[in-house]
Write a protein that binds this DNA or RNA. Sequence first.
DNA 1: ACCACCGCATGACAGGTGTCACGGGCGAGT
DNA 2: ACTCGCCCGTGACACCTGTCATGCGGTGGT
Lengths: 210, 210
Amino acid sequence: MVSTPVIKILLADDQALVRGALAALLDLEPDLAVVAEVGRADDVVAAAERSGAEVCLLDIEMPGSPEVPDGIAAAAALARAVPSARSLMVTTFGRPGYLRRALESGAAGFVVKDTPAPELAEAVRRVHAGLRVVDPLLAGESLAGGANPLTEREAEVLRVALDGVPVARIADRVHLSPGTVRNYLSSAIGKTGTSTRVEAARLARDRGWI
Amino acid sequence: MVSTPVIKILLADDQALVRGALAALLDLEPDLAVVAEVGRADDVVAAAERSGAEVCLLDIEMPGSPEVPDGIAAAAALARAVPSARSLMVTTFGRPGYLRRALESGAAGFVVKDTPAPELAEAVRRVHAGLRVVDPLLAGESLAGGANPLTEREAEVLRVALDGVPVARIADRVHLSPGTVRNYLSSAIGKTGTSTRVEAARLARDRGWI
DNA sequence: ACCACCGCATGACAGGTGTCACGGGCGAGT
DNA sequence: ACTCGCCCGTGACACCTGTCATGCGGTGGT
């Protein structure tokens, strides 16, 4: 009695409570079924293969291995390893750079966690049908925000600068001369229009540039 | 036909998706009913009065008014205005200081968002029965972490220092002399065992001291 | 009255930071 | 070949920061 075709869903979120709650929400829909749940980015591919999931809901902020550190990396790995599975990013932060990087990594959809709950099921169905799902407001911001002006090195030093460590320690961690680090920081401060490295690092993070 | 007494629940979380998902999860339980949902800390009291909620699930990280800026403040307001309602904090961050402040504000329970989903309903029942619900691991950390060593001014200055603004702007925002700000920062750096104000601010935040 | 403490402030000093000028090397596009 | 941008480094300068000593007024305890 194959009454209705059911969409098989994988849930990836590091917060067990949220994971369970989303499962409850989605299982209310008769045409949706949660077939796998994981709490780490590096567990996604194996669970997707094992469960035959068709749509994967991936949180971006998730712990993982150095190779697959977050949900975006999981989406990229998934696109390579399990092309039949389509990724729908579900994230707290509507950072334009997140959206861009997620789509570049092969994600099919992107919703933020303050979208109304009923829309999630619909987003899952659209993604399963082969459509792209993107928050229109966020898409606008992403285009208006412009591209990432930072070079790879600038981004690297800013990532370390995020927690306010002194230049000497940054230089140590990225294996560069302290003077070079200061040059990169100065350049990044100029590009971001800020006045300290911590401000520059925070702005770059909020834009999704690092 | 009053078959079973039903516990009336208010849900407060700024992320609509999480709110809806938690509602779905709790409504699976026959003895629980979500009777109100809000997305801001300063809407909690009014919604609790209107709905007659008995247990209020409050996220800590929630936008609000200056008087009721977050979930902890909402719990305090609730304890005064609606003593019949009991508060159960549900938060992402298991910061010891959060726990302490939440309990001081009259919350009856405290669970983090990565507790297993089935335990939430049980926590709600316990809180409704008049018991305290506290993550035992977190309770240990809270005791081990010790009390807040910062003075009020030090905490105030650190709050502004969190985003890496220069001393002049901090002084401006807290209405103090730049020299005084530097003294407080130096003192806070000493107390936290760090070496820059940003590190001190981040540590203080993670400990729940600010 | 006295002392201890706290909040707030100033001044001075060493060291860290942001900016600039300048250098060399390397790959990509023209 | 040439230019351009990025990478990496040095050196110098003004300014900001972190630390310390010192001071003054207020508050609370004895």
